[in-house]
Each structure stands twice: as structure tokens, then as C-alpha cells.
Design a protein around this nucleic acid. Structure first.
Length: 371
RNA sequence: GCGGUAUUGGUGAAGUGGUUAACACGCUGGAUUGUGGCUCCAGUACACGUGGGUUCGAUUCCCACAUAUCGCC
């Protein structure tokens, strides 16, 4: 069964939307944060732990699963859900981001992209058709268009050409796409050029997708203001009855700012990456658990209901991190994902009560402190 | 007791008769936004066993001592 989206209400103070995703696995409210499980696992966490946190959709990656173990293996296993034992919705990224991170501009042609495998250096060729075929076989609930994701700082000429190519790739992908149980989302590009974002959004919507994403942000040291502009240049042209997905964004304040500008779902590697590197979100800002000052701090990471905070102390987690024990990364991954999940829950409450801007002010005051 | 070898920062370990004595680990911070997981960046260390001698100059050469270690009796 294909996922459906239902808009419940729009907030009065901002463009924020409360909505609902209906899937065969259950219903999930939006705005929502999706943890990233690149290689069919959210690093260090079991599917049961993800379920317990309660986030809903997880993201996995076409490129990585294509290379290893291969989409045919996963198809034989009965699809990605069955393969990884995750009974919740899964979104697969198309491999477009790897174009950005692994290929050079000269390797991008109209037909597709040539780049080297990060595993063994093999020369690889990815096209919209190949990406759709792989995603069809993986059997994710939401597949993404194969796009080009240039750095946000790319100049106007390049960005314009890139937007046009991404549109042509989107059409080709839609034609090649062939799985009635899966949704296919289009991706809007255009950097922070207002006219390109508008054009990209209008033309992508014209092609017609089950949902729409904003890509190409938070990838190039651009300022937060520039990023927020790229969002608000895009959302006005995105249909209100379809999911809106801001790709790759996960900084707590960016989630709030994104929702304010009309975004429904987000994904980001940052909570789990920070966790593996010993950092934890707290109400009062991000902390580095490796810091010596936590050596004998026997309080929990944060005032929080997650599995890690209910039973473990900063001192213990610090010890695990310093000793290189993976349980430390796991506890912090649980906590950081829970933290973002909780923010999204608070955001949804604020939308219901039409006081999201007050929530944002309160959050900023606590998170970034008085100074 | 005799003979050999060694002694460099918290640890391991280079090196040189002459400006600021490598490097690694550790330790202390920082970074991280559609993941090339366990990385990257920066900072930190009264360091040349002790006492003499040779030399313009010794951590580097010589002697003694101390300590460690190996072998022999």
C-alpha cells in the first residue's frame, strides 16, 4: 500500500503545517524527523530501539545498498523492510547526494553520472533509470528522484543548467519508475537564487510527484539565513496537499525554522554522527561528553525520558566513549534522536495551539543561553 | 662478584658535537546538516639519570656513580 498524506491544519502565526502520514505500518504525525540508516541500519541502533524512540520513517541509501549487498540480494530477502527487520516506513535517497560528494562536475553528463566507488574504486555509472530500478527493487515506501545536488555556492550559470538537468532527470525517472506500492518524490534545486527555486519548484510540480523535497541546502557552509531563504523561496510553490521534505537538515534550530517555513519532514545524519563523536544535545545546548568536567558527573545527560537518560549517567557514558566502547555511541544515538523527536513533538503541540513562534523563542533562549 | 647493554616529556620511541630535540599514544579543547561510522583540526609535555672531564660549545665523546636488564660464576 502506498503511503498517504493528510493535512490536518495550518498554523496561524506561520506557514507551519500539522499533518498525518498513513501507512500500512501505522499513522505518523508530521512535522517529523527521520533518522538516517544509510546501510540498512541506523548506525549503532537496532530497529527495535528506533521503534521505541518512535520516530516513524527512516531513511536509507540507494547508492550504498546498490554497491553492497546489491539490490537483488535485498529483493530476494523480500525487500528492505524484511531484510533489515524494520516494520515502519522507509524512504530511500536516490544517490543524487553521492553525485555531489563523490563525483566531479566533469563526470556529470546528460545521460548520468560517472564516479568511483568509495569501497574499491570501481568506476560506476548512475542514471535516473538505474536509480529508479534499484529503488523499486529495494521496495522503500518513498523513493526519491535522481537529482544533481550542486554546492549551494555554485554560481548562477551552473545552478541554472543544473536545475534544468535535474528537471529532465526527474521526468526520465518518473517514466522509468514502476512500483505501485511506492511513492516517488521530486526534488527542488536552485541554490539560494529565488528565481531558480521558483522555476525548479513550479516545473517539478508540473511533472507531478507524490511529494516534494527541497534539496541542495546545508551542504556548503552557507549561512543559516541563506538556507532559510532557499526554503522560503521554494515552499510557496509546493502543493499544500503533499508532503514537503527538507533534505539533510537536522540542526535543532533549523528544524524549527524549516517548519515555520512550511516543511513537514526532515532527515539528517547529525544526531547519530554527533553521538558517535561523543556529543549530546541538551535543552541548554550541545555538550561534549568527552570533556573532563563530566568525569564525575553522575547526573543524566539531560532532563529527558529516553532510555539513555533514564538509566545512565554522564560519567558512565564519558567512560564508555573514552574507552572506545560502542555502547556509549549507542546511548548517545538514542538520546540525540529522541531529542530531535521530542522537538518535533513539541512543534506539533505548538502548531495545534498556534504558538510556534513563542515555542521557538523559548527554545532559542534555553538552547543558546541568555548571551 | 665479573662482563655486556640501556637510561630522552605521563607512556612508547627517533635523533644530533653548535639556532625553536622528531613522531606516536595519552591528556585538553574544537569541528561535524540527503553518512566514504569509530574521523578531522588544534593545543598540551620543568624531557636528554647523577657527578666530573674533553671541547670555544656536550643530550651527543670519555670516566665514575646510580638504576634497570641480560649473561656468567
Amino acid at each position: 500500500m502506498k503511503i498517504k498524506y493528510e493535512l490536518i491544519k495550518e498554523e496561524k502565526q506561520s506557514k507551519a503545517r500539522l499533518g498525518k502520514i498513513i501507512s500500512k505500518y501505522g499513522e505518523y504525525e508530521t512535522p517529523m524527523f527521520m533518522p538516517v540508516g544509510t546501510q540498512a541500519t541506523v548506525k549503532t541502533l537496532s530497529p527495535e530501539e528506533i521503534k521505541e524512540i518512535g520516530t516513524g520513517i527512516i531513511l536509507s541509501n540507494t547508492y550504498h545498498l546498490w554497491l553492497r549487498p546489491g539490490e537483488d540480494v535485498i529483493a530476494k530477502a523480500g525487500g528492505l523492510h524484511s531484510f533489515m527487520n524494520y516494520s515502519g516506513p522507509i524512504l530511500t535517497d536516490s544517490g543524487g547526494f553521492q553525485v555531489f560528494s563523490l563525483a566531479k562536475p566533469k563526470d556529470i553528463t546528460e545521460e548520468g553520472v560517472t564516479f568511483k566507488s568509495h569501497i574499491n574504486g570501481d568506476k560506476l555509472f548512475l542514471t535516473p533509470e538505474i536509480s529508479m530500478n534499484i529503488q523499486n527493487k529495494l521496495g522503500s515506501d518513498i523513493a526519491m528522484s535522481f537529482d544533481e545536488c550542486p554546492p549551494a555556492s555554485a554560481n548562477y550559470e551552473y545552478m541554472k543548467k543544473s536545475v534544468e538537468r535535474t528537471l529532465r532527470w526527474a521526468k526520465r525517472g518518473k517514466e522509468a519508475f514502476n512500483n505501485p506500492d511506492q511513492c516517488l518524490f521530486g526534488i527542488i534545486q536552485g541554490g539560494y537564487f529565488e528565481d531558480l527555486r521558483k522555476h525548479s519548484a513550479l516545473e517539478t510540480v508540473k511533472i507531478g510527484f507524490d511529494g516534494y523535497a527541497i534539496g541542495g541546502v546545508a551542504n556548503d557552509n552557507e549561512s543559516k539565513e541563506e538556507m532559510y531563504k532557499a526554503i522560503q523561496y521554494s515552499t510557496p510553490y509546493m502543493p499544500s496537499d503533499k508532503l514537503r521534505y527538507l533534505m539533510g537538515v537536522g540542526d535543532p534550530i533549523d528544524l524549527i525554522e524549516g517548519v515555520i517555513r512550511g516543511v513537514d519532514i526532515f532527515d539528517c545524519v547529525i544526531p547519530t554522527r554527533l553521538a558517535r563523536h561523543g556529543h549530546a544535545y541538551t535543552k541548554y545546548g550541545k555538550i561534549n561528553l568527552r570533556n573532563a568536567k563530566y568525569k564525575e558527573d553522575f547526573s543524566p545527560v539531560d532532563d529527558c525520558d529516553c532510555y539513555a537518560c533514564k538509566s545512565y549517567t554522564k560519567s558512565y557514558i564519558r567512560h564508555l566513549l573514552v574507552a572506545g566502547e560502542t555502547f556509549g555511541s549507542r546511548l548517545l544515538s538514542v538520546h540525540n534522536i529522541y531529542f530531535l523527536h521530542k522537538i518535533m513533538s513539541n512543534i506539533r503541540t505548538a502548531i495545534r495551539e498556534d504558538n510556534l513562534l513563542e515555542y521557538k523563542d523559548k527554545f532559542i533562549k534555553e538552547y543558546y543561553g541568555e548571551n
